[in-house]
Amino acid sequence: VAKSVLFPCKYASSGCELTVPHAEKAAPEKLCKFRPYSCPCPGPFCRWQGPLDAVTPHLTHQHKFIRTLQGDDIFFIATDIHLPGAVNWVMMQSCFGFHFLLILKKQVKYIGHQQFFAIVQLIGTRKQAESFSYQLQLTGCKRRLIWEATPRSVQEGIATAIMNSDCLVFDTSMAQFFTEGGNLVIRVTISK
């Protein structure tokens, strides 16, 4: 009987109208745009979950240190880059009618080896993220480091990208070529 009946998506109460056979429910539910989103702010403390359109207001109101800058081409100046231990620099960039979350993360991936990871996430679905690309550029004295990719969606998170080094990765010795007065300047360009 179950094989012949169509079941509603798990997130039907949030507005999803999809109905599928029981055996095929798992895949679309994973990508369902009505699935609650977790707070994308790095750090282990926030347990907030909610709909996609509530993510940006949540970040703005509950994580007040995250500031927003308008424009598709900006300079992200991470201050006090030499601070030891696990540190995050987070901001939002607003352009093309969307918000992007920019994260620079310093962490120890291997014992005694600190690395920086920089990544851009779209506060939107995976499908929406596919229509954008971003470029991160570090410029120092006669040196330039560029990373170009498609932004991740906040639906996916960044843990896998960091684990697979699928983002801009550089270590502390390389960072020093691009640091001035303790600040690291990253030019972030988003295009459609």
């Binding site: 900006i74 300079f75 201050t79 620099w89 620079l104 120890v108």
Partner: peptide, 24 residues
């Protein structure tokens, strides 16, 4: 066409207790 310098923003570090949590 005039070149407009991109806007800049200073982003302060946020130090979380991740390290402590990993050590526990």
């Amino acid at each position: 066409r005039t070149y407009r310098m991109p806007k800049e923003i200073r982003v302060e570090p946020q130090k979380f207790a991740e390290e402590l949590i990993h050590r526990l």
